[in-house]
């Protein structure tokens, strides 16, 4: 799906991503984790074709990302930003209809097929009762679902999400996480997302990408990547990790700062 070869983003002193090489497989959920400012969002923007890599090559579905036309690319890949602004009184349905834009020729109108796809996206994201409401009148969790629905209307093979659960309470965070899992298993959509919460990343991901100051620290299945050493090196925290044998789930608890970083502050 994605082959990222020796990618650098930014210039010398301001290099955000340095020499990143990684391959991302189709059909899986990949989480990018790392501390603030480690280049997670920048990396996501680069593979979402929003940002050009300074050096190196990003290959998406066997052709270089720059060779993709904007519209064909948008038919394959949907991108959900960290912050979304919308037209003040636009309704949920109208917002989702914009997702059909890359599939339409200039001046072509939405037809019945498009309407069916929009309807399907509304159902999948459980927005039936909210479809005619103004997006701005929704709560944070509902709004996030509306943006995901718009991305689904693009019928992408890949969905990129930049911290889709931030600013949401735990219930709505889980709602989004469950929805993404469902989209991955039922629709076969490849998902690449940036997450702050390591527990959530462990819960949802097939693969975890840990970044540390713009470099790839580790990449692999959650059990292998989420270790005390990684937490120590990347996040500068100590914590305990429990891997439950039956559900293969990982939980991290009892976080505390490293002594050295405490001392540094003093």
């Amino acid at each position: 799906m994605f082959e990222i070869k020796n990618v650098h983003i930014g210039y010398q002193a301001n290099e955000v991503i340095s020499d990143l090489t990684i391959q991302l497989e189709a059909g899986k959920i990949h989480s990018i984790i790392g501390p603030n400012g480690c280049g997670k969002s920048t990396f996501l923007k680069a593979i979402g074709n929003q940002l050009k890599a300074t050096y190196g090559e990003i290959v998406f579905q066997s052709s270089n990302i720059h060779k993709w036309g904007r519209k064909p690319f948008a038919r394959e890949l949907a991108y959900l930003m960290q912050e979304n602004e919308s037209n003040p009184e636009i309704t949920v349905r109208q917002l989702i209809e914009y997702g059909r834009f890359p599939h339409k020729k200039k001046f072509e109108r939405l037809n019945q097929d498009d309407q069916a796809i929009v309807e399907e996206a509304i159902k999948l994201t459980n927005l039936i009762n909210l479809a005619e409401r103004a997006v701005n009148s929704l709560s944070g969790g509902e709004r996030q679902r509306a943006w995901i629905a718009m991305a689904l209307a693009q019928q992408p093979t890949v969905l990129l999400l930049d911290e889709p659960t931030s600013y949401l309470d735990i219930h709505h965070q889980l709602e989004i996480i469950e929805l993404l899992k469902q989209l991955n298993t039922e629709q076969g959509i490849t998902i690449i997302l940036v997450l702050h919460d390591i527990n959530q990343a462990a819960m949802i991901s097939d693969q975890i990408i840990a970044l540390k100051s713009g470099r790839l620290y580790d990449f692999g299945i959650p059990k292998d990547v989420i270790t005390q050493t990684m937490l120590h090196d990347v996040f500068k925290v100590n914590a305990e990790i429990i891997i439950s044998s039956q559900s293969e789930s990982i939980s991290i608890y009892n976080f505390h700062l490293l002594n050295e970083s405490l001392n540094n502050k003093k």
Partner: peptide, 11 residues
């Protein structure tokens, strides 16, 4: 919808 959103929709 904003620069990056419209870009990601293929505009």
């Amino acid at each position: 919808l904003g620069d990056s959103k419209s870009k990601s929709l293929g505009l």
